[in-house]
Simulated scan of single mutants.
Amino acid sequence: MARKYDRKNDELRHYKINRFFQQHPAGSAMIEMGKTKVICAATVEEKVPNFLRGTGEGWLTAEYSLLPSATHTRTSREAARGKQTGRTQEIQRLIGRSLRSVLDMKALGERTIIIDCDVIQADGGTRTASITGAFIALVEACDTFFEPDSGKPFPVRDFLAAISVGVSTEGELLLDLDYDEDSSGVVDMNVVRTGEGNFVEIQGTGEGRPFTRDEMKKLIALAEKGIDELISYEKDILGNELVWKVGREG
């Protein structure tokens, strides 16, 4: 199977993250994975939900949306329909769970971080791109209130990235699926993992046929290869002023 742009089966699409993409949020980034583009923003509020008041712990929640013009066929705004789709709810819960997995809620304090992921162009992998881009925005946001001399740990405990993998109709294992590969493939899997190598989420579906245990192991290994590359890139773009803070214990 020949992939677009002569991409190898174990090769990521061209990727790029632009930091400080927006002026107003505490942290923001625009991530590109091939033709998929997502704006990720992190807003800090000095309050928490009622169930966390007085606990000294913070919270993180996420929202996800697809711009009407992001796909080949215009998609009506969910606000106009007055209801979120099940897909939207699933994705924003995944983003929130993933980011909370590397967040120290005590170190965050009684603050809420709201993550907004807005897809401006979709060509597969929007949920995984959202997680990777939102991680950068999260680190930036936490840096706005972190006090290095306080003796408290930095709220972000580890790096985080996500990627998709799958099996084509020809039985080939592919890394970082675009829309055509995702829609025609027989197996689709999304993997979220930390820098330390711990898995946050593995979502695998045999859409065309069941997949074997051996295929699952190989797909996860392929995803890890892509995640390692993305985390290395995250460290490069965060630079020396922020990389050392991630995982800092005091």
Rank of each mutant, 00 (worst) to 15 (best):
Gly82Asp: 05
Asn50Arg: 08
Arg19Gly: 00
Leu160Asp: 00
His14Gly: 00
Gly124Gln: 04
Val192Gly: 02
Lys35Cys: 00
Glu32Met: 09
Gly171Thr: 04
Arg127Tyr: 08
Val102Gly: 04
Leu94Thr: 15
Glu110Lys: 06
Ser184Ala: 10
Leu99Ile: 06
Thr128Trp: 03
Arg93Met: 12
Ala107Phe: 08
Tyr179Ser: 05
Glu215Arg: 12
Ile113Gln: 10
Thr128Leu: 00
Ala70Met: 08
Gln23Ile: 12
Ser168Thr: 14
Thr205Phe: 04
Gln203Ile: 00
Ala122Ile: 02
Asp178Ala: 00
Ala137Asp: 02
Ala137Asn: 06
Asp236Arg: 12
Gly247Met: 14
Cys40Glu: 03
Lys235Asn: 02
Gly125Ala: 15
Val165Tyr: 03
His24Ala: 09
Ser183Phe: 02
Asp149Pro: 05
Asn18Gly: 05
Val200Gln: 04
Lys4Arg: 13
Gly239Asn: 03
Thr73Tyr: 13
Glu140Tyr: 11
Arg157Val: 08
Glu249Leu: 13
Thr43His: 15
Ile163Gln: 10
Lys4Met: 12
Leu219Arg: 13
Ile237Phe: 03
Leu52Ile: 02
Ile202Thr: 13
Arg100Cys: 10
Leu67Glu: 04
Gly197Cys: 03
Leu230Phe: 02
Leu52Glu: 01
Gly133Ala: 12
Val167Tyr: 05
Ser232Phe: 04
Val167Met: 14
Lys35Asp: 06
Gln92Ser: 03
Ser168Trp: 14
Arg193Gly: 15
Arg97Met: 01
Thr169Asp: 11
Met216Tyr: 12
Glu241Gly: 03
Leu222Thr: 13
Ser183Pro: 05
Met105Asp: 07
Ala2Asn: 11
Leu66Asp: 05
Leu60Phe: 00
Glu234Arg: 10
Gly58Thr: 00
Leu219Lys: 11
Lys218Ser: 15
Val139His: 05
Ala80Pro: 03
Leu219Gly: 15
Lys218Asn: 14
Asp180Tyr: 03
Pro153Gly: 12
Gly56Pro: 06
Ser101Ile: 02
Glu241Asn: 15
Lys225Arg: 11
Leu52Ala: 00
Ala107Gly: 07
Thr36Tyr: 06
Phe21His: 07
Phe199Tyr: 14
Asp176Ile: 13
Ala62Leu: 04
Ser184Asp: 12
Asp228Gly: 03
Tyr5Phe: 12
Val200Thr: 09
Glu201Pro: 07
Arg111Leu: 02
Ala141Arg: 07
His14Ala: 11
Val186Arg: 13
Asn18Ser: 13
Ile136Gly: 07
Tyr179Gln: 08
Thr144Glu: 12
Phe199Ala: 07
Leu138Ser: 12
Ser150His: 06
Lys106Ile: 01
Val102Gln: 05
Asp176Gln: 11
Pro68Phe: 02
Glu32His: 06
Asp6Ser: 15
Glu46Asp: 12
Trp244Ala: 13
Leu242Pro: 09
Gly86His: 13
